[in-house]
């Protein structure tokens, strides 16, 4: 499924999105680079405030500017076309067409006063130039596609008449209406129960196979990442701290933060074992620590960590960690 050497569909380089607030400049995203290859699922994981959502909104140009500003030198390319500074008209043409997005809270993404069929049809008429009747028929087909029962009836229902899982299915149907090449899913299952989450993840995997679209999955849930992603980007304090395949990240985490995250989950083999927590809290984006941003919370911090850290290549292509000690940590195995 993962296309190893396929050219990048989306290429983000040195993305810096800063917020200019009364309290100071919040460097929410501070130099982020990654590629999404056609057809793959890339996960961006991190805790709240790490910049993962701002990254995804910057890609789509959906942040209100000001207070946000995508800084000089940032680049977001879709199939080689630069999106930063391409203008609102071009972005509107791409959004919902080439790139679609689904959000955590499907209720607030749907307009409560319109029937769901009308909302899907609106997008179809806009992007695919369908007439009213064809759009409605297509809406019914899409609702069936995303596994909504009785789509002919549901098409005339309002968002509040649906359950959370059904609303997320409607959102996915809308996102799929133009068969996008990239779907950005921002915490798509966080508001859902586990059994419904399983349904939605299964649906996403199925649709990905069918349409061959790439998925950029933004989440804080390491379990979800392990279940569905091909490659993973771990973010902390506005930066990428580790990248690799899902097997690398979970099998041999190289950055102390990634290790800390995994260790703070209950162990599957020994559920009663005391959790290893990361001390302290995520620093303030207005005042990121100097040097390694994880230094103050890192159990392995020593001399040398007070210097700014670059992403260090770790052997295979696309395997990096923002820690100067990562090569030796990986070599000596998981020794936390």
């Amino acid at each position: 499924m993962s296309a190893e050497s396929a050219p990048a569909l989306l290429s983000v380089r040195d993305l810096r999105t800063w917020f200019f607030t009364d309290q100071g400049v919040a460097k929410a995203v501070d130099g982020v680079s990654f590629d999404v290859r056609a057809g793959e699922t890339l996960g961006i994981v991190g805790e709240s405030g790490c910049g993962k959502t701002v990254t995804s909104l910057s890609v789509l140009g959906l942040l209100p500017q000001p207070p946000a500003r995508v800084m000089e030198g940032s680049s977001v390319r879709l199939r080689g076309e630069e999106l930063i500074g391409s203008g609102e008209r071009r972005m509107r043409a791409l959004r919902g067409n080439e790139i679609s997005m689904i959000f955590q809270e499907p209720m607030s993404s749907l307009n409560p006063v319109y029937k769901i069929g009308g909302q899907i049809a609106e997008s179809l008429r806009l992007h695919r130039g369908m007439d009213r009747k064809a759009a409605r028929a297509e809406a019914v087909r899409l609702l069936a596609e995303v596994g909504l029962s009785e789509p002919e009836r549901r098409v005339d229902e309002y968002p509040h008449q649906l359950s959370g899982g059904m609303r997320q299915r409607v959102m996915i149907a809308m996102a799929l209406s133009c068969e996008p090449s990239l779907l950005i899913a921002d915490e798509p299952t966080t508001a859902l129960d586990v059994t419904v989450q399983a349904q939605i993840l299964e649906l996403l995997a199925e649709l990905r196979g069918k349409f061959g679209m790439a998925v950029l999955l933004i989440t804080h849930d390491l379990g979800v990442v392990a279940e569905v992603c091909d490659r993973v980007v771990v973010m902390y304090a506005g930066q990428i701290v580790e990248t690799g395949t899902v097997y690398d990240i979970f099998g041999e985490p190289a950055h102390p933060y990634t290790r800390g995250l995994l260790d703070s989950l209950p162990s599957v083999e020994d559920p009663g074992k005391r959790l290893d927590s990361i001390p302290g809290t995520v620093p303030n984006p207005i005042d990121w620590p100097t040097g390694c941003r994880f230094r103050a919370r890192c159990p392995l911090a020593t001399e040398g960590c007070e210097l700014p850290q670059d992403l260090v290549e770790l052997g295979e292509e696309g395997r990096t960690a923002r820690c100067w000690r990562a090569p030796s940590l990986v070599a000596t195995g998981a020794a936390t």
């Binding site: 029962s149 586990v194 059994t195 989450q197 399983a198 349904q199 279940e227 979970f250 599957v268």
Partner: peptide, 27 residues
Amino acid sequence: RALLSAVPRPDPVGREQRERIVLQGDV
């Protein structure tokens, strides 16, 4: 059983083979 099988596990190894009971419909 369905609930336990639906919990995503933070370990990608063998995820394709994992048996999962996906319940249909809503509560």
